[in-house]
Amino acid sequence: MNNGRKPTSSSGVKPRLTDIAKQAGVSIATVSKVINGRPDVSDGTREHVESLLESVGYSRPLRAQKTNNNIEIVFQKFDSIWGMELLQGACGAAREHNCSVTIAESGNRRSPSSAWVNGVLERRPLGVILVFSDLSKKERKLLSSRQIPYVILDPYGNPSVSTASVRADNWTGGLTATRFLIRQGHKRIGIINGPRKMMCSKARYDGYCAALEESGIAVDPSLVRYGDFTVDSGRREAFSLLSNGSIPSAVFAGSDLQAMGLYETARRLHLRIPDDISVIGFDDIQASAFLGPALTTIRQPMAEMASQAASMLFDMHMGKKVSHEVVFPTRLVVRSSTIEHS
């Protein structure tokens, strides 16, 4: 157990695992599985044993923690060009450290599933990048207890003060996109945003509202839609927005993928882009330059953000301090999907 090392407590007293097993009502083998991050333990048992280990101040010796030379990047679902660009950035940083990258799917946009959390304890990667996620106190404690550093990329909500994160300046991006459309003469500007509770969605919407308000344009709730950053939600919400009698002259899509869905719906409704409706996206994925017409968008440097997150993991693994929050600037990329409105 523990590579032959006896467990030690923070107080210097060596807790007996037989006592832990007896208090928990499980076998010593089960306690060993919990300590070593084995997956074949129920969530309830794992949590109970972890709590008892914590109560006696048990800490796992650093040298007993064997890690694999790879980092893990966790998506809700890895099924889009957007994810490929993040992966490209993470792989670039990993190559510089002779490290590999593996992909995992959590199955939940907001937080990783228990299956993933148990799995990562067994896989013992050098570190973890979580995309669009939050971690519970329990999950943070489990990763920290195994000395597995983690960075959240574009957090779902406000990360804790102890959590390292990387994101884009979403508020400025939303402001810039809407200001650009206003300068082109648009006043009825719709928005197809991401999930209501997601931090980046809130920031982009707030930037949209700020640009309208500074120009004396009231925010019209009938022009606001919420999707989930996918092509399907862009298609669906665009139909809701554009099939009404009075359509907006321009739409700010919260992601380039949603803009792609909007393009398809516009064609079905016989609306021409940009003649009948201007469209601006967010992300600047590679495919956006090859749409017909090429998509005006707000660029967030996704590959660079993922590279930064990976570099932070390597620094944390080496015991170096990293910034609590790294924010990348966004910028406007003007193409052919927007036009001046008279």
Rank of each mutant, 00 (worst) to 15 (best):
Gly194Asp: 07
Gly194Pro: 04
Pro195Tyr: 11
Pro195Met: 11
Pro195Gln: 09
Pro195Phe: 09
Pro195Cys: 12
Arg196Asn: 12
Arg196Cys: 08
Arg196Glu: 14
Lys197Ile: 08
Lys197Val: 07
Lys197His: 14
Met198Pro: 04
Met198Asn: 12
Met198Ile: 05
Met198Ser: 11
Cys200Asn: 14
Ser201Leu: 01
Ser201Arg: 00
Lys202Val: 08
Lys202Gln: 10
Lys202Met: 06
Lys202Gly: 03
Ala203Leu: 12
Ala203Gln: 13
Ala203Lys: 05
Arg204Tyr: 09
Arg204Cys: 09
Arg204Ser: 05
Arg204Pro: 10
Tyr205Glu: 11
Tyr205Leu: 13
Tyr205His: 12
Tyr205Asn: 07
Tyr205Thr: 09
Tyr205Gly: 01
Asp206Tyr: 09
Asp206Gly: 06
Asp206Ser: 13
Gly207Trp: 09
Gly207Arg: 07
Gly207Cys: 11
Gly207Ser: 08
Tyr208Lys: 01
Tyr208Asn: 04
Tyr208Ala: 02
Tyr208Ile: 00
Tyr208Thr: 01
Tyr208Arg: 03
Tyr208Val: 00
Cys209Ala: 15
Cys209Asp: 12
Ala210Tyr: 00
Ala210Cys: 04
Ala211Leu: 00
Ala211His: 02
Ala211Tyr: 03
Ala211Cys: 05
Leu212Asp: 01
Leu212Gln: 00
Glu213Lys: 12
Glu213Trp: 01
Glu214Met: 02
Glu214Asp: 06
Glu214Ser: 10
Glu214His: 01
Glu214Cys: 01
Glu214Gly: 01
Ser215Met: 02
Ser215Cys: 00
Ser215Phe: 01
Ser215Glu: 03
Gly216Glu: 06
Gly216Cys: 02
Gly216Ser: 04
Gly216Trp: 05
Gly216Phe: 03
Gly216Tyr: 07
Ile217Ser: 02
Ile217Gln: 01
Ile217Glu: 00
Ile217Trp: 03
Ile217Cys: 01
Ile217Thr: 02
Ala218Val: 05
Ala218Glu: 11
Ala218Gln: 08
Ala218Thr: 04
Ala218Ile: 02
Val219Gly: 03
Val219Cys: 00
Val219Ile: 07
Val219Tyr: 03
Asp220Lys: 04
Pro221Met: 03
Pro221Val: 03
Ser222His: 11
Ser222Asp: 14
Ser222Met: 11
Leu223His: 07
Leu223Tyr: 03
Leu223Val: 13
Val224Met: 08
Val224Phe: 06
Val224Leu: 10
Arg225His: 10
Arg225Ser: 07
Arg225Asn: 08
Tyr226Leu: 08
Tyr226Ser: 12
Tyr226His: 15
Gly227His: 07
Gly227Thr: 02
Asp228Arg: 08
Asp228Phe: 09
Asp228Leu: 12
Phe229Glu: 05
Phe229His: 07
Phe229Asp: 02
Thr230Ser: 13
Thr230Leu: 06
Thr230Lys: 06
Val231Trp: 12
Val231His: 13
Val231Leu: 14
Val231Gln: 12
Asp232Met: 14
Asp232Pro: 10
Ser233Gln: 04
Gly234Ser: 12
Gly234His: 09
Gly234Phe: 09
Gly234Glu: 10
Arg235Pro: 03
Arg235Tyr: 15
Arg236Tyr: 12
Arg236Phe: 14
Arg236His: 14
Arg236Ile: 15
Glu237Thr: 15
Glu237Asp: 15
Glu237Val: 15
Ala238Phe: 13
Ala238Gln: 06
Phe239Thr: 12
Phe239Gln: 15
Phe239Cys: 14
